[in-house]
Design a protein around this nucleic acid. Sequence first.
DNA 1: GGTTTGACTACCC
DNA 2: TGGGTAGCCAAAC
Length: 113
Amino acid sequence: MAKKDSKENFFQHVYEVVQLIPRGRVTSYGAIASYLGAKGSARMVGWALIASHPMARIPAHRVVNRIGMLTGSQHFDTPQAMQERLEEEGVRVESGQVQDFEKLFWDPAKELL
DNA sequence: GGTTTGACTACCC
DNA sequence: TGGGTAGCCAAAC
């Protein structure tokens, strides 16, 4: 037994890390993937977030690509829900892109060290 | 069960 | 400098 926990853990870890993102902060798919040891599998993080959508309330809006662009906004109930939610938390977003992304960037590998 | 796609990233030319 | 391609792994068709 215990032969299928790897994948499940990966998804669960994604949800856990995303929920740990502080309010008003953002991170990238690659950062989460790298933190989980799945470096290079950033797509899996995105896939996990899609699966997480109908699941627990995951602040998926705090996860953007490496340049701070809200590429996943189309997957929300409304394309602008992601941006509004971020702005509501104090994150400046313009044209679907996070402003001061470097400052707001939250790296689990460092913050959760 | 092979092919295509996808909320990405990095490398190559 | 920048566009294109490859690598990643899982789900949908």
